[in-house]
Design a protein around this nucleic acid. Structure first.
Lengths: 221, 221
DNA sequence: ACCAATCTTGACTACAAAATCAGGAAAGCT
DNA sequence: AGCTTTCCTGATTTTGTAGTCAAGATTGGT
């Protein structure tokens, strides 16, 4: 059996609940890698080590399994996020930097999230609408609001806040999502813990700082 | 009939060649939006205004149609690129900046490219291998080499060149690929020509500059 | 140990989409 | 015009996958 963050759920609940959790974990992995239609129920079943029919016992249909897997992911992420509370009175730019740090760390721990957003965010449709409604919308709007404040406080270059937010996230998730490309194109392997830390450094030090308004430097000749 | 950049091909060649071009254009649009499996031959046929069987007359199977559409896209892009030749003796950083400008412009004109790379680059598999082999590999390695030179010349912060290249491209294509997300999440509409120019500004001025090593700015003109 | 509820499965159905094919229309040549 | 090649289509077959179902296995309570 595959081991990942959802495997913890195997320890609790009734047998059915444990199997359902295993199915959700397998489904999330497949859906996020292959997208919804490329993923088959049979594949998920095999990965979870149960029969295909078991999937339909625990979940009404494929779409509902997808939503269930997403909610599961969201719950795990929310729990990890709660651990960190941004200081309310800090400058917007600092809250934003903190949010980006968190985003990168969570993206490494839960690569499925970024992949799903990329897949559905390109395609549009009802699954995207569901994601925006249930998981992404508030969070993104909050970040955009934060970016707008940071601009107003003179700390960010004055680009459209929504664009800043989406671009930052796309940049941060890019390397993580595109591991297969990195491997196929450059022969680079998946990252160790040290590599992840270096990646976080890169995003903050390079990409994020690119948006930062360096008043002192710019007023220089 | 849908009009796009491939429609030009309608003017030349035999009747069959013109129909094949129309099919490739329709296929490219669908494949890049929906991904390979979500796209059906029937849909492509309807979009191209021919019968489903006609697709199998011109192309052996779905996979070959996909490859053919990609080659078509690559040919168009290559032609546009050829118009611009980077000065050989310029500093690597300037060549890189020029390449990014080109990348953003081409990405706006051919949004299918970025979507395909994102889709297949996340999933891995034989289509990705084909893409790397036939149209991405050399180009990306050349860019990485350029980034490495720029680092050696002290113009870029010393992050791994492959990571810089992929992250820059992910950041630049992010907004373009994720238009449906922008719309669903923020209600923002597709971009006008002015919006595209502004986006290019943002990528170069913010993201690209984030990677630039500012120490050298003082010593440079 | 027994029972009832919960869970799981193999076998099956329904359906959508890819691929094939024989027949016929259109284009191009002489 | 007559002939040949190229092109296109409707009808059909094949294949892969989602979803159903009745029967049997497992689990947990008493």
């Amino acid at each position: 059996m595959k081991v990942n963050f959802l495997t913890a759920a195997l320890q609790i609940g009734t047998k059915g609940e444990r199997v359902a959790a295993r199915i959700r974990a397998a489904a999330l992995e497949q859906f996020s890698r292959q997208g919804f239609e490329r993923t088959t129920m049979g594949e998920i079943a095999r990965e979870a080590g149960v029969s295909q029919a078991a999937l339909h016992y625990h979940f009404q249909d494929k779409a509902q399994l997808w939503r269930s897997a997403m909610l599961d992911l969201a719950a795990h992420i929310a729990e990890e996020e709660r651990a960190i509370t941004a200081a309310r009175d800090a400058r917007a730019i600092d809250q934003l930097r903190m949010a980006m740090r968190l985003f990168v760390e969570i993206s490494w721990r839960h690569p499925a999230l970024g992949r799903i957003v990329a897949l559905e965010g390109m395609a549009g449709g009802e699954r995207l609408a569901w994601l925006v409604e249930n998981l992404l919308g508030d969070r993104n709007r909050r970040l955009a609001h934060l970016a707008a404040r940071a601009i107003a406080e003179g700390d960010l270059k004055p680009f459209p806040p929504e664009q800043i937010v989406v671009t930052l996230q796309a940049a941060a998730a890019g390397l993580i999502n595109l591991q297969p490309l990195m491997r196929a194109n450059f022969g680079v392997l998946a990252y160790s813990a040290a590599g992840r830390a270096a990646h976080l450094d890169m995003i903050l030090a390079a990409v994020f700082d690119g948006f930062v308004n360096r008043k002192t430097e710019e007023t220089r000749p």
